[in-house]
């Protein structure tokens, strides 16, 4: 007998009775048979217990998953819904993602382009230097909001005199000056990583790398919920 073979009628009926698949008349008939057959009732009890055990063991398994993992999954779902909604509303290219797409398209040629752009920039600087003594007149990358007063105009500018390089584990001053230009869109390369919290995840988007961490307390907070 295998899975494709028809079951003996008694077995099929008892199982269908247990699973609530019989119509009322057939169910009554089986119930009457059960009344006079303790062995059959024992068999039914075994099936019932098996169902409870399977349910409970998988409930317990699900409780082992930290709440934070589900939060991360929700974030992914939420992002996907947002993407779906955006593409439904505006199928044409959004201006904000233009750079990302250009960057992706040019990715294979990034190294030669950077080399060429670098060479060109050096040549321009050389030409300018020959005509003017001022350095950093035209920053390559647009500066961000207002640089704080007294701060250097660009990261290439020399650090202020007397500004101390952090010595071994030095707390940094709370309000510093240096405003860096707009960051370059690129993934980071992770050489080694250790997550100490409950969970951790790395997401490379092509223009920025995001590390997601979660404090243990956060994940424990709501994990007591039962199924």
């Amino acid at each position: 007998m295998n899975d494709e073979t028809e079951l003996p009628k008694a077995d099929a009926e008892l199982q269908a009775y247990f699973d609530g698949e019989l119509d009322a008349a057939a169910a009554q008939e089986v119930a009457r048979t059960l009344d006079g057959d303790p062995a059959l009732r024992g068999h039914l009890a075994g099936m019932s217990l098996m169902r409870d055990l399977v349910n409970r063991s998988l409930e317990m398994k699900a409780l082992e998953v930290p709440r934070a993992r589900f939060e991360q999954i929700w974030d992914e779902i939420d992002r996907t819904i947002e993407r779906d909604t955006r593409s439904a509303r505006a199928p044409q290219a959004a201006p904000a993602s233009l750079w990302a797409r250009i960057a992706t398209a040019l990715r294979p040629f990034r190294a030669p382009l950077l080399a060429a752009a670098g060479a060109a920039a050096v040549a321009i600087v050389a030409v300018r230097l020959s005509g003017s003594p001022e350095v950093n007149q035209a920053p390559e990358v647009a500066s961000l909001p207002e640089p704080p007063a007294g701060g250097p105009a660009s990261p290439d500018a020399p650090a202020p005199q007397g500004s101390k390089v952090a010595d071994r584990t030095t707390p940094a001053p709370a309000s510093e000056d240096a405003t860096l230009p707009q960051p370059r869109p690129a993934d980071a390369e992770i050489h080694g990583i250790e997550f100490g919290g409950k969970t951790g995840r790395i997401s490379h988007t092509g223009t920025v790398t995001v590390l997601y961490v979660e404090e243990e307390d956060d994940s424990q907070k709501k994990s007591e919920r039962s199924l």
Binding site: R184, E189, I190, H191, I193, G196, G200, L211, V213
Partner: peptide, 22 residues
């Protein structure tokens, strides 16, 4: 307690983001 400890490399003036939870 450490949440994350990583050695990474990035382009000069590059950015790394860390999502540190709620």
């Amino acid at each position: 307690k450490s949440l994350v400890s990583t050695a990474y490399s990035i382009e000069d003036n590059g950015l790394l983001m860390i999502g540190a939870g709620a």
